[in-house]
Design a binder for these strands. Sequence first.
DNA 1: CTGGGGAGGGGGCCC
DNA 2: GGGGCCCCCTCCCCA
Length: 257
Amino acid sequence: MPRSFLVKKHFNAAKKPNYSELESPTVFISPYVLKTLPVPVIPQPEVLSPVSYNPITVWTTSNLPLSPLPSDLSPISGYPSSLSDTSSNKDHSGSESPRSDEDERIQSTKLSDAEKFQCSLCNKSYSTYSGLMKHKQLHCDAQTRKSFSCKYCEKEYVSLGALKMHIRTHTLPCVCKMCGKAFSRPWLLQGHIRTHTGEKPFSCPHCSRAFADRSNLRAHLQTHSDVKKYQCKNCSKTFSRMSLLHKHEESGCCIAH
DNA sequence: CTGGGGAGGGGGCCC
DNA sequence: GGGGCCCCCTCCCCA
């Protein structure tokens, strides 16, 4: 029998996670610009994936891997080290053979004075060399800094697979036949179905408790440990969960010390 | 107020 | 590339 809080609260708009709020401030881009210039917005740094932890390690809020992306981190792999790196131009199009700068110059001489600098990719003409270079830089961006935007929100991903996975959180294709509740992934549905069947396949080796979810068993195992994973940097008290540590610190421990 | 259970979400890895 | 699974995390709620 599901308890009241097990009912999905997403139908309450106030409680529904607003994924866009998780994003870094987004620069508004005119739909016209997006339509006419297929240049991807520079993907915002995603929230850092948590580092795997050593079970022996005691985390404090000061050493928790929760800080924003450090500014000295390497750029996302696959990004050009410099926008002026023209070496990637050869990958512009599979249907068009790469052209050398010499070819470019030759073609330029065939054009009128007003439009003597022409893009070899889209044939758009420019009156100045710098104008053409600026234009070509956009092509370079579009080809090397691929991003895949979600049509339901403003999230962007560097791979199509990641985007497809994300889109499932909007479409929720996995529906529980018992209660109609929908989930993004099959295994989430499986876990939910256990709330109907009462199945608890994850047993604690230290006590008689069993859990339907492995993560919850892991959290439970912390309660058997004398030294918990999360430690208050002020009073050295340890907690089984980070949320409990946060509660502890918010309750005034940090102020008292 | 604190500790802990239940449920669910997201990203990453492996096959 | 997709599915399954894992890990980590968060939120809500209760004792």
